[in-house]
Design a protein around this nucleic acid. Structure first.
Lengths: 235, 235
DNA sequence: TCAAAAGTGTTCACAGTACACCCATGC
DNA sequence: GCATGGGTGTACTGTGAACACTTTTGA
């Protein structure tokens, strides 16, 4: 058997699909490469795995480097290993997707990266198979968010029901009935209503809610059926 | 940046979690290593990825080699890359899980492997992190089978409703009401009732069904909610 | 006072559950 | 004919969808 690395070089990388939400749209973080090859082209945030770390470690390191934030929601998406996916040299990449409150994000003074948030609906051309990776990430985000309380990770600590609804509507590209949406969310008992109101969005104002973090972790796996998955979505 | 393979050797492998069902129990295929190190110990079926193939290709090749079968249901489970997961040399492994009709399986005359089917509830000790990998695979099998018409892959082309129900009960370690189970399955319109009956299981005999393959692929993603996931399961 | 958005109530249809009942057959 | 497991009927319950309605407040 020809074992890899015995004959030929193999590069081992991670790519991060970082989703953010600015109150209007779902966004993806991409970087403009400042180095050859493909200088100036857009790509996902990524990097090579170092000798003393796992792929998870590498993805966390890169996320921290880029966003300045620890403890972001992150999960493994898929491993990509097609022989010609990287046109320069054979590279396998494990893709991770992460969710971030875009408000918390502070641009890091890191000249290796030139990050930008782009609308998920108007993606630029990305290098290699990165477009395909993002498509898979979008699918998995929708799939997982329909079954688990994920999307809170994209919002600030305090948020209103209309804000949450708008986010869901962005992700699923559909509209929900506000009454039913609110009842459905509240029935999970994951949220705590605050006394404070947000007066930005309307004259009446909407109450803030926050995630009840104890219940959140406990019932991550019993949040199923929030969105009647696959029915009524528009792709 | 220290890129992998520039300094140090990295092995690139795949592992296959092969599930089968013999009419009684859910089974896992394991092999007894005929070579050092760990000769005689049990492990998952696996192998190294060759230069000219992707991890998917490698997994398919190994499945074919072991079972003699093409076109098995297979999906990527997870990539494992902890630095010390392989105690001999650093190896990353992409795990795939596969479902097989155990009747179709014919032992291959391949002396590299010594395969055995073991009950999923009485797993032997496995090398490295393979036990952990199997646990994850079990979880994902349950998760996915609750949302998609997966488990048919474990049955022969013709099967009866009681057989299907027994399989589901094995997978979820629970009991279903036969009436409700049957109606729920049939409501998906995925099955075609045959005129023939199986007389093995009972005096009255049970009608055979087969998967309507056109509808099967079409509605793979709309089979959601077969098992009210997480409610009423026993781990 | 009116428009606009937040939030509540009410109705209806249907899906899931429990369980009683009927059916076919081998012994 | 009766025990056994296959299969059907049915009543009850809860959930989700639709939409009308009330509330609050700034302009």
């Amino acid at each position: 058997m020809k074992r890899y690395s015995q004959q030929k070089r193999l590069l081992f990388a991670v790519d991060c699909i970082i989703f953010g939400y600015d109150g209007q749209e779902l966004k993806l973080m991409v970087i403009q490469r400042s180095f050859s090859p493909f200088k100036g082209d857009w790509s996902l945030v990524g990097g090579f795995v170092e000798e003393k770390e796992s792929a998870e470690d590498a993805a966390k390191r890169i996320l921290k480097q880029l966003t300045g934030l620890d403890g972001l929601y992150m999960e493994q998406l898929h491993a990509f290993s097609a022989i010609d996916r990287d046109t320069v040299e054979r590279t396998i990449s494990i893709a991770y997707f992460a969710l971030i409150d875009i408000q918390k994000y502070k641009k890091q003074i890191n000249e290796d990266f030139h990050p930008a948030w782009v609308s998920i609906n108007k993606l630029p051309k990305l290098i290699f198979d990165h477009t395909e990776i993002v498509e898979l990430a979008k699918k998995k985000l929708r799939y997982n968010a329909a079954l688990h309380p994920l999307l809170f990770e994209l919002l600030p600590a305090k948020f209103t029901m209309p804000q949450l609804q708008h986010l869901y509507q962005c992700v699923y590209n559909t509209e929900f009935d506000k009454g039913n949406f609110s009842r459905k969310i509240l029935s999970t008992k994951l949220l705590m209503k605050l006394k404070e109101k947000d007066k930005q969005g309307s004259k009446k104002g909407a109450f803030y809610y926050k995630v009840d973090s104890k219940k959140y972790t406990a019932s991550f796996n019993s949040f199923l059926n929030l969105v009647p998955a696959q029915n009524g979505w528009k792709e």
